[in-house]
């Protein structure tokens, strides 16, 4: 009996040591506060929850890629610019470039969208490969390499779009980013795949090892340049996917889309337990961090503050981020 009691006690202790437990409690606490407030009915309405899920999926795609790079000991500041670039590339592919292949005939919708997705995602992956090249071969620090492309790719996006929003007319493409079911399904599949890769494969363990101690990883025989290429490639790929979804959601490719979105992606990863020094965090935690951030944003919007809720949002979100990260750090130290 005492054995059973002590094992049960150990189980509870282990549960509370889990990094995600703090996030679960944070999410539950925020949901509880909203439930007890005057914002309950509007926040918990199906439409509101659906909108929140949609935003979680849209920003989640970006956060997953950002999390992998952070776990691998890097940083990707170019996410927002890749979102803009991929949105205008996709829009121009569908409006101008791909229809030319059909020599004036109307291209089939599915083939047009399919080709657009393949080309845009490949472009995103290649941007990640370019980041890895700058970091591995030119020896630029990741912060500088991706800071340069943050500015450069935004400029390329504006050049391609001629600084004008490009309307998207394909219903199928719009559905990907505008229909919550599609967007959430895409995000969920990506989250599950990346969670399995990071938690259950050799590649995942190598990425953690790289982020934990690059020198040790190199001395252990890990192929560090290749691992960085994979991490940045995945981040570029997920940012391009985000660009496709945001373009579908807004119905436009826009060189000014996604300004500051890299900060949202990094915030979700950090709140979710990813350490900016690398080697720590998880896809699970990132998703939970993202959920917490989006609940706070949505919840803040539903309260009647007497001033514009968008003016209060940053203050509330900043406070929650500080509390969440402080709790994570304290929890990690004690465990």
């Amino acid at each position: 009996m005492s054995d059973r009691s002590s094992s049960s006690h150990a189980w509870w202790k282990a549960l509370f040591r889990l990094q995600e437990t703090g996030l679960f409690l944070g999410v539950a606490a925020v949901l509880g506060v909203i439930y007890l407030s005057s914002a309950r009915d509007s926040f918990y309405s199906p439409y509101s929850l659906q909108d929140m899920l949609h935003q979680i999926a849209l920003f989640g795609v970006l956060s997953l890629g950002a999390a992998i790079v952070i776990i691998a000991g890097g940083i990707d500041l170019s996410v927002g610019s890749v979102v803009a670039l991929s949105s205008v590339v996709a829009a121009r592919l569908m409006r101008d470039w791909l229809p030319a292949l059909w020599l004036g005939a109307a291209p089939p919708q599915t083939a047009l969208v399919g080709l657009t997705l393949v080309v845009t995602l490949s472009a995103g992956f290649l941007i990640g490969v370019f980041h890895a090249f700058l970091i591995n071969q030119i020896r630029l620090p990741p912060f500088i390499a991706t800071l340069a492309t943050l500015a450069g790719l935004r400029s390329v996006a504006r050049l391609i779009s001629l600084s004008q929003p490009i309307g998207i007319t394909s219903d199928l493409f719009i559905k990907l980013g505008n229909d919550t079911t599609f967007t959430v399904a895409i995000f969920s599949v990506l989250a599950i795949i990346l969670s399995v890769v990071m938690g259950m494969t050799v590649l995942g363990r190598h990425l953690y090892a790289l982020g934990g101690n690059e020198a040790a990883a190199r001395l252990s025989g890990l192929r560090v340049p290749r691992l960085k290429l994979i991490a940045y490639g995945l981040s570029g790929l997920s940012a391009a996917l985000g660009g496709i979804l945001f373009a579908g959601s807004t119905g436009q490719g826009d060189g000014n889309l996604g300004i500051g979105y890299e900060l949202w992606a990094i915030t979700a990863a950090v709140v979710g337990g990813c350490s900016l020094s690398g080697g720590a965090g998880s896809i699970r935690g990132t998703v939970l961090g993202l959920v917490l951030v989006q609940i706070v944003i949505k919840g803040t919007g539903q309260f009647k503050w007497g001033v514009s809720s968008t003016e209060v949002e940053g203050l509330v979100l900043g406070t929650v981020v500080v509390l969440a990260v402080a709790f994570n750090q304290r929890n990690n130290k004690s465990s």
Partner: peptide, 19 residues
């Protein structure tokens, strides 16, 4: 306010509808 972010502009409308 949306700061020129069209995604945020749509989110604001959805928030207003429920709020």
């Amino acid at each position: 306010t949306d700061g020129g972010d069209k995604n945020r502009a749509a989110v604001n409308v959805r928030t207003a509808i429920t709020k």
